[in-house]
């Protein structure tokens, strides 16, 4: 009951979706679309679990005054602020105009975007220090890595771009594509193998422990 039925469900739905892919009938495609909707809906209910967990973890930190508990107020403020200002109700003159509302747009444009893009831009500094350690040309392979990276990087450097761009473009479109293609094929075959293991009940990690 606790394990056998879930295994059977994975098997049935897995093979059903596989079969539907190869049936070019309108009815089959309709079922396929419905199933996709089902996964979205289940996923959204799972998100609610995550949000609930976020709220309880932060309330618990505040209640027990755990380390850095003051910051939990900021998290909860951000969460509820975004949800409240993102809701749409109260007619045309209401301040709650959903994603079109003034506050929701500013929360997105002036909180989310600046922090995200700055966090990613910070990686420029960390990636540079990681590169220093990784790229020291201690072997032929490390040297190839170094040369590939440098050529591609100076492709954007205005003073030499004219000369380096053809070489950089060739590296990006030829050896880089060859490497990516091999990796994609490996990943694709890996996904298919893992998928079959899941459908056949060999891989059961998703069920967790009893």
């Amino acid at each position: 009951m606790k394990r056998q039925i879930p295994l059977a469900l994975v098997f049935i739905f897995g093979w059903l979706m596989l079969a539907l892919y190869f049936i070019p009938l309108e009815g089959a495609q309709k079922v396929n679309e419905n199933m996709l909707d089902w996964t979205s809906i289940i996923g959204i209910f799972a998100l609610a679990l995550g949000i609930w967990s976020l709220i309880t973890v932060n309330l618990d930190r505040i209640k027990h005054k755990k380390r850095d508990w003051q910051y939990s107020f900021i998290t909860l403020f951000g969460l509820f602020g975004m949800i409240i200002f993102g809701l749409k109700f109260g007619g045309e003159n209401s301040m709650f105009q959903g994603q079109e509302s003034y506050m929701f747009r500013h929360f997105f444009n002036d909180i989310l975007i600046p922090i995200y893009s700055t966090m990613f831009s910070l990686l420029a500094f960390f990636i540079a220090s990681a590169a220093y350690r990784a790229f020291r040309a201690r072997s032929a392979l490390a040297s190839i890595l170094l040369i590939g990276a440098i050529i591609v990087m100076i492709r954007f450097f205005p003073f030499v771009a004219e000369y380096t761009r053809p070489v950089a473009d060739w590296i990006l479109n030829v050896p880089n594509l060859a490497a990516k293609r091999a990796i994609w094929m490996g990943v694709g075959l890996g996904i298919v193998a893992t998928g079959l293991k899941v459908i056949l009940g060999i891989e059961r990690a998703y069920m967790g422990r009893d």
Partner: peptide, 27 residues
């Protein structure tokens, strides 16, 4: 586990042919 199993079943059944097509056959 029931909804998780159905989710995993649908997602896996969808992923196998699509990944095979995009990452292997088309390459």
């Amino acid at each position: 586990r029931y909804p998780i199993a159905i989710y995993i079943g649908i997602a896996t059944g969808l992923a196998i042919p699509l990944e095979m097509q995009t990452k292997v056959t088309e390459q």
